[in-house]
Write a protein that binds this DNA or RNA. Sequence first.
DNA 1: TTAAAAATAGTAATCATTACTGATTTCATG
DNA 2: CATGAAATCAGTAATGATTACTATTTTTAA
Lengths: 130, 130
Amino acid sequence: MALKYSRQRQVIKDFLMSRKDHPTADVVYMNVRQEYPNISLGTVYRNLTLLADMGEIQRLRVGDGVDHFDADTSAHYHFVCSECGNVIDLKMDNIDNIIDIAGLNFDGEIQGHVTYFYGICGNCRKKTLS
Amino acid sequence: MALKYSRQRQVIKDFLMSRKDHPTADVVYMNVRQEYPNISLGTVYRNLTLLADMGEIQRLRVGDGVDHFDADTSAHYHFVCSECGNVIDLKMDNIDNIIDIAGLNFDGEIQGHVTYFYGICGNCRKKTLS
DNA sequence: TTAAAAATAGTAATCATTACTGATTTCATG
DNA sequence: CATGAAATCAGTAATGATTACTATTTTTAA
């Protein structure tokens, strides 16, 4: 099944690339509908999954029960604010060496890891101090 | 609402403590039913949540869409096999220093992190080689 | 012993996501 | 440009994990 162009898929990807936060499928749907009023939620889900499978976007499972999506496919880490739930990019050094540490006493083959950081984001901390 | 003893809760916790893998709510339900035939799935969910909130067990969200539960509440890491889906404990050195690395260029407060390792477990690797 | 509070079984509801279907769009080929 | 097979779509139904609800039962302090 050769992939065919679809206006909807393009709009979804464009929207994702325009955001530095990491919207859920529903948020993508709400926003894309402004420009494309009769797009279907199913289409949004199908294309997000398709884009993720092709490696053009990243699916984030941060543990809040809803999938988030990120157009930035480069290796980077995320922070989840326990207060507001926002998912934020972290600029930090590579920590891939933890794979080696994990593999030292393990008989299987470790191929990758997923790490999320939790706490209070800068914004929420300011609010709490008032 | 003071906590009252419940036989069901005890059985659920006992079962969890008897397992070194990390069963889902449904697996807990299936097994506990052997000993307690008319326990309700809702009761299993409610008590797992309760125990997790009290810090007596740990809820694991490994990204497979189903919550896993672990009676070992000590800080340790988990490996998820991409082949069989099993969740396995890792014996490895502490890597809490990644919190410090993550916090270097961040204006919020990082309080913790969740890390899962992925790959092929020892068992599945053996099978593949045959 | 008793009665208020907590917990239960059983079932209904929720919520994110996926599957299905008949209509529409894409695009390689003539 | 025309056309038709394959891909995609919109709309909706189905799924699956989890949570909420309710009438009944259990726990436990007094």
